[in-house]
Amino acid sequence: MIRVVACLAALAIAAPALAAPAMAEPMPKHVGDCAKTKVARIETRLIDGDGKPVAGSGSAVDFVNGGYQVSYDQVAAIDASRPGDPAEVCLVSVPKGCPKGDHRGKIYKTVNLRSHGQWTLPDAEHSCGGA
Rank of each mutant, 00 (worst) to 15 (best):
D48F: 02
D48R: 04
D48N: 10
D48G: 05
G49A: 10
G49I: 07
G49S: 11
G49M: 14
G49W: 12
G49E: 15
D50M: 09
D50C: 01
D50T: 14
D50I: 00
D50V: 06
G51T: 09
G51P: 10
G51Y: 15
G51K: 14
K52G: 07
K52V: 07
K52T: 00
K52E: 09
P53L: 05
P53G: 14
P53D: 15
P53E: 10
P53C: 09
V54N: 00
V54S: 01
V54I: 06
A55G: 08
A55W: 02
A55L: 14
G56Y: 13
G56C: 12
G56D: 14
S57K: 06
G58T: 09
S59C: 04
A60W: 03
A60Y: 01
V61H: 10
V61C: 06
V64T: 01
N65Y: 11
G66E: 03
G66Y: 02
G66Q: 09
G67E: 02
G67F: 01
G67M: 04
G67C: 01
G67R: 00
G67T: 00
G67I: 00
Y68Q: 15
Y68I: 05
Q69G: 15
Q69M: 10
V70T: 13
V70E: 13
V70Y: 12
S71C: 15
Y72F: 15
Y72K: 12
D73L: 03
D73F: 04
D73V: 00
Q74G: 13
Q74R: 13
V75W: 08
V75N: 01
V75A: 05
V75H: 10
A76G: 04
A76W: 08
A76N: 07
A77T: 10
A77W: 03
I78M: 10
D79N: 11
D79G: 08
D79S: 14
A80V: 11
A80F: 09
A80M: 03
A80Y: 01
S81T: 14
S81V: 02
S81H: 00
S81Y: 01
S81P: 05
R82S: 15
R82A: 11
R82L: 11
P83K: 04
P83L: 08
G84A: 04
G84I: 02
D85I: 04
P86C: 01
P86H: 01
E88C: 02
E88L: 02
E88K: 14
E88V: 12
V89M: 08
V89Q: 04
C90N: 07
C90M: 09
L91P: 02
L91F: 09
V92G: 00
V92K: 11
V92E: 05
V92W: 06
S93A: 10
V94T: 15
V94Q: 11
V94R: 12
V94H: 04
V94L: 11
P95T: 04
P95A: 08
P95F: 11
P95V: 07
K96D: 12
G97K: 07
G97E: 04
G97A: 05
C98I: 01
C98L: 07
P99I: 14
P99H: 04
P99D: 15
P99R: 10
K100H: 05
G101H: 15
G101N: 14
G101F: 06
D102S: 13
D102G: 11
D102C: 08
D102E: 08
H103F: 09
H103Y: 13
R104I: 08
R104A: 10
R104Q: 12
R104F: 03
G105M: 06
G105K: 08
G105H: 02
K106C: 12
K106I: 06
K106Y: 07
I107Q: 05
